Amino acid sequence: MKTDKVITATVEYFGSDKKRIHHFLKVYSFAKTIGESENLSADEQELLEIAAIVHDIGIKVSEEKYNSSAGKYQELEGPREAEKLLAALGYEKTFIDKVCYLVGHHHTYENIDTLPYRILVEADFLVNLYEDDSSRSAAEQAYEKIFRTKSGKNLLKIMFLIP
């Protein structure tokens, strides 16, 4: 699986918004790492990696339309933007629909029903905890309430909970 075209297209989409570009690259890196550690199938790994790259693609439209980057707006606007980008790159509709589901739910923490969905949420949390300079208490809560994969929990523990 090659992700270079999706990464390049997403960088082009965000343009000079370096903060958003660095964010998705970090989430992609953690998602890739956790997915490989959890032994996802090749299809699940591809879905996870592409979804991680485009997971926040709705931010731009959300900020323009609602003057907010809130998760609910990202989930609302992201799937349409992800679909346009991935369709232009030649991805099949069934695959795009799966990616769009993850993009449209990556801030919804109940009923996480697949491993790619779980890992995307965990990877995004790892990056957001760092970028938001979250407290140890916030990391502990995420560890208890959000994280389920062995490798995701281990990364969170190393980065935020071990003194």
Score class of each variant (00 low, 15 high):
61 V>F: 07
114 T>K: 02
114 T>D: 04
61 V>G: 02
87 A>C: 00
117 Y>D: 14
111 N>K: 08
18 K>W: 12
112 I>Q: 04
19 K>H: 08
115 L>A: 02
47 L>R: 05
81 E>R: 06
47 L>F: 10
68 S>A: 12
73 Y>P: 03
80 R>A: 14
63 E>L: 14
62 S>M: 10
66 Y>P: 01
45 Q>W: 05
64 E>K: 15
109 Y>V: 02
75 E>R: 13
67 N>I: 09
72 K>I: 14
41 S>H: 08
31 A>G: 13
14 F>M: 09
55 H>W: 09
118 R>N: 01
33 T>V: 01
112 I>F: 00
45 Q>D: 14
37 S>T: 03
21 I>L: 09
126 L>D: 07
64 E>R: 15
125 F>Y: 14
44 E>P: 06
113 D>H: 02
103 V>Q: 03
134 S>F: 02
36 E>C: 07
59 I>E: 10
43 D>M: 08
101 Y>M: 00
54 V>C: 12
22 H>S: 12
25 L>E: 12
101 Y>T: 03
126 L>H: 06
33 T>N: 12
59 I>K: 10
54 V>T: 13
98 K>E: 10
35 G>S: 11
47 L>S: 08
28 Y>I: 07
132 D>H: 12
47 L>I: 07
119 I>W: 01
39 N>G: 09
98 K>F: 00
34 I>P: 02
25 L>A: 03
133 D>I: 01
22 H>M: 13
38 E>M: 11
81 E>N: 11
